[in-house]
Amino acid sequence: MAHNALLSELHSLRDQVTGVMESAVATVDGLLVVADTDGVQPEVVSALAAATLGLGKRTGHEVGMGELREVVIRCRGGYIVVYAVGQVALLAVLADEGLDVTRLHIESRPAVERLSALLTQERSPN
């Protein structure tokens, strides 16, 4: 089932990247698809991540810095990182302040690609 496959991607991101605590996949308009969360409310994170992504894309476009890679928010207690997953979805990652940022950047790209493939499969079942 694609939901389980999506969830395993989120689990594996948490296993592979030191500091990743929680994550969620949502549609680009903020509806939750699947979440690996602990304390946070996944629906709320999904909605806010969608707004964050939109704002990041728009700001990047406005200042002419090219295509958005990801939106990184850094707080005292950690990071919120939002990636676009294709044109239809997003990945929000919550991490503590010890996050291995380099590792996340390396691991997240293929993870986003795999999530995108899973979501596309789901949209057009054979």
Binding site: M1, A2, H3, N4, L6, L7, L31, L32, V33, V34, A35, D36, T37, D38, P42
Partner: peptide, 8 residues
Amino acid sequence: GTVSAEDP
């Protein structure tokens, strides 16, 4: 704590 939006 793992949540999915719809019951598959």
